[in-house]
Design a protein around this nucleic acid. Structure first.
Lengths: 225, 225
DNA sequence: GTTTATATAATAGCTTTACTATCATAATTA
DNA sequence: TAATTATGATAGTAAAGCTATTATATAAAC
């Protein structure tokens, strides 16, 4: 028996469910590769179609446009992270240990997860770092938010905020701290590699330093005073 | 006598210096308005040209493309923030007071500064919040960084990091904390207005709450233990 | 085993974006 | 007066961002 890992995605994110067909899976998998390779701005459905040997119109049957596809990919990523967080913190009661696990999950490069063969998670993590903010930094945020496109991200944030409150029920900014952890886990890594003087890790380029920074930041803030 | 405030901009950011001509100033001023109105993705030089009553080719004489223009605007903004930081913290010795002043300058909406009439700073702040990350979240970061396009941002970060070190010379992450302050001052405000459940200020929508959060975060982290 | 539905391929076409080039003209400056 | 410089007017091109149609292959339903 093989247990298959699958995430139920928001139906409004696609025109035709890419999980249900071969071409659909190819579109998602290879769009991640191509976005990683050329960046989201240069990425087009036409290039993707050539890359996977189909036609532009073929891709448009699955996704409205490239921005929707990026939201789809990002939503999938955050759902997957939440799954891993729940899995890895299961049976752990100590909120401090939990939070440290989560920070590591967020900031450390992942090894390829064989359970979801059609996605290379290491590359996925890299495009999340560089592109994910673009999903919500648009004029359509509010509309997209109403369609629950950012639910996986928000759920993860709420999950982390809850653990923060278990650690210290009197801490006043659990949600803002949670979103700070998530965002900074990405930005500090991006800065470390691309604008190193914005961090203290430019020399080593070691993601564990980002973990240490975030741990120090978080536990200083929520320590009971 | 009238003292005029002017920022020396990186020459590589433009083809023709927009500060030197009427059309140039109009391009910068109105691009800020138009980006604010329709968002950077929908913004085009053609629309801008119509908006200010010139031609597309006219705009292209000043800036290579809209991304360069965004970098120009962003660089101007960070230079202006640094100027205000230096001005407002002048004669203050206490690093705690300094840092608190800076956090307020970063997170609180600015009133329109009459010294630089051709820019509406309140709108400018809003487009920085929503669009500034897009200046460096590209495949050209490294190249653009070599051309010193992000120098004003990096200088501001270094300035803040230095004050952090005066406060606590043993703190290990002054630069990362500085970039965290700058980024979160923007993101928490963006979240507060657009994805409120990612913050603890969704109800009040008061920027002073972001200031309180950041102050608490920063001084917990750098307090001598 | 034929009908029907579904997925994809192939092609065409249309509007907008993102530019580049050329020529004319108005206003300064040398 | 000549020479620069700034702008305007116009044209044109390649690519991006779509939509539509028709054909075909395959699998599911009857």
């Amino acid at each position: 028996m093989e247990v298959q890992f699958q995430i139920k995605m928001n139906e409004k994110l696609f025109l035709r469910n890419p999980e249900h067909t071969e071409l659909g899976k190819k579109i998602v998998q290879h769009s991640i590769e191509l976005i990683h390779e050329i960046g989201f701005e240069s990425f087009t459905f036409k290039k993707l179609a050539e890359y996977i040997g189909t036609t532009e119109a073929g891709v448009y049957r699955y996704f409205d446009n490239k921005h929707r596809l990026l939201i789809y990919i990002t939503a999938w990523y955050w759902s997957w992270v939440q799954y891993r967080v729940l899995f890895e913190t299961k049976n752990i009661d100590n909120p401090e240990v939990k939070l440290k696990k989560i920070i590591k999950l967020l900031a450390k490069t992942v090894e390829d997860d064989t359970k979801t063969l059609h996605v290379n998670e290491s590359i996925l993590h890299q495009i999340i770092i560089a592109e994910a903010s673009k999903t919500y930094l648009t004029k359509n945020v509010t509309e997209n938010n109403k369609d629950l496109f950012f639910k996986p991200y928000k759920d993860l944030c709420a999950l982390i905020a809850d653990i923060i409150l278990v650690y210290n029920p009197k801490y006043k900014y659990p949600r803002s701290l949670a979103s700070t952890i998530i965002e900074m886990a990405q930005f500090q890594i991006f800065f470390m590699y691309n604008l190193p003087s914005l961090t203290d890790f430019g020399k080593t380029k070691n993601e564990l330093n980002v973990v240490s920074f975030l741990e120090d930041l978080v536990f200083s803030a929520i320590r009971k005073k």
